[in-house]
């Protein structure tokens, strides 16, 4: 299939970010696209350059510090009507620990922009470490999880415009329904991702607008909606 639409897959192809079906579509397009070979060669060269730079993984000491912090952090007390309880100080402490864990997870997950990895084979190590740190961030976040209507829990840790959202114990939905996350602000709500109706649990890294105040959850038709079409079943305020 030759089409401008297939051609735009060439960037993702150079990054090795296509699944089987898309790869086949692009490769068939390459067959009758005279200019493609040169473009692909150049984009591949860029990717190679990205792979030839200096490695960066979060220092082991940082991870150890986060784990120590978590170990010494008490669980939140049960929610009481009076929010100004003695638990508040502990809650602040927890939020800081959660923030630190989330920052580490972001660093490992994104390895964004400034720093890069020297060899593709280091990827496996970094991924394993990122998975570890995601687990840590999930567990820390879960300590402040809030129950959702109809079952499941939601927890959010946010740092500097990015949020780590963890949902778990989600009841299975009918095949044509999904859970959808929303970033809510005084201006309205924006989609923050979809979680499969049978996933049970998931976490997402979400970039938020400055005005965002909470992450909310609704149940939507498969594929998600532009705006919520059903009642909010869960909500968690943004920390930090």
């Amino acid at each position: 299939m030759t089409s401008p639409e297939a051609h735009t897959l060439i960037g993702a192809y150079a990054l090795d970010a296509l699944d089987e079906a898309d790869r086949a579509r692009l490769e068939s397009h390459l067959g009758d696209c005279p200019g493609c070979a040169a473009e692909l060669r150049e984009l591949r060269a860029v990717a190679t350059t990205m792979g030839g730079a200096v490695p960066m993984t979060p220092p082991a000491s940082l991870r150890a510090a986060v784990l120590r912090e978590i170990e010494g952090t008490a669980q939140l007390p049960p929610r009481l009507a009076d929010r100004r309880s003695r638990g508040q100080r502990r809650a602040t402490f927890l939020a800081i620990a959660a923030g630190a864990a989330a920052v580490v997870a972001f660093a490992a997950l994104g390895v964004v922009g400034a720093e890069t990895i020297s060899q593709r084979h280091q990827l496996a190590d970094v991924r394993a470490q990122a998975a570890d740190l995601e687990t840590v961030a999930s567990e820390v976040a879960a300590q402040s999880a809030r129950p959702m209507a109809g079952g499941g829990r939601i927890a959010v840790v946010s740092v500097a415009g990015r949020a780590f959202v963890d949902v778990r114990e989600l009841p299975d939905l009918p095949a044509n329904r999904v859970y959808q996350l929303w970033a809510a602000s005084p201006k309205g709500v924006e989609s923050a991702g979809i979680v499969a109706g049978n996933a049970g649990r998931a976490h997402r890294l979400v970039t938020l607008s400055k005005e965002a105040t909470a992450v909310k959850v609704t149940i939507e038709p498969a594929g998600g909606s532009k705006q919520p079409t059903s009642a909010v079943i869960g909500s968690a305020p943004l920390s930090g």
Partner: peptide, 23 residues
């Protein structure tokens, strides 16, 4: 652009997964 490329190249996600992660 930077986040899409980083997540695909350095974290190994497909572009569809990246789209979901970045909403």
């Amino acid at each position: 652009q930077r986040e899409s490329i980083s997540l695909a190249y350095y974290s190994g996600y497909t572009y569809r997964e990246v789209a979901e992660m970045l909403a």
